[in-house]
């Protein structure tokens, strides 16, 4: 299915580091995706936006330690609302063992640590949507 991918992307909670997530958003846009940029939002608002925008992918950014508290909440609430098809990606400053837990038991599709090339993120998001279609 050759259609545009729609990504809802947000900074989790109060986090103040806007540049990384903005950069990712720009790269996704350059890759031809429609990127709905939410700014700083909490899980309930992020999920509501994912519903209204009919998102294929939710991207989260966390650089300040709230990933374990808020990341899994997004996954759970999406499921609760019937959005089982939506994949959640999370990027940021995250200890390795946390990343493993998030990708494992917490159901985050992919966790990106610092120094991940932007192209990897773009490619993996595209693939995940193509695989789901």
């Amino acid at each position: 299915m050759d259609r545009k991918i729609k990504v809802v992307i947000a900074k989790l909670g109060l986090d103040i580091h806007w540049r990384g997530v903005y950069l990712v958003a720009q790269y996704l846009k350059e890759a031809g995706m429609d990127v709905v940029y939410l700014g700083n939002k909490f899980p309930a608002e992020i999920v509501e936006a994912a519903i209204e925008e009919d998102a294929d992918v939710v991207g989260l950014s966390s650089l300040c330690g709230n990933h374990l508290a808020l990341g899994p909440m997004v996954v759970d609430m999406l499921k609760e609302k019937g959005l089982n098809n939506v994949k959640v990606f999370l990027g940021g400053v995250i200890p390795l063992d946390h990343a493993k837990r998030l990708e494992g038991i917490y159901g985050i599709h992919r966790v990106y640590l610092p120094e991940t090339p932007m192209q990897t993120i773009v490619d993996e998001i595209s693939e995940s949507v193509r695989d789901a279609a």
């Binding site: 940029y37 936006a49 209204e52």
Partner: peptide, 24 residues
């Protein structure tokens, strides 16, 4: 590229428990 950065929601604050709003 046809892609778009859609940023209007950044400025929109909807309390979904109190407001009946749908934004696209």
């Amino acid at each position: 590229t046809g892609g778009a950065l859609l940023g209007d929601r950044v400025r929109m604050h909807v309390k979904h428990d109190k407001m009946d709003v749908f934004i696209r």
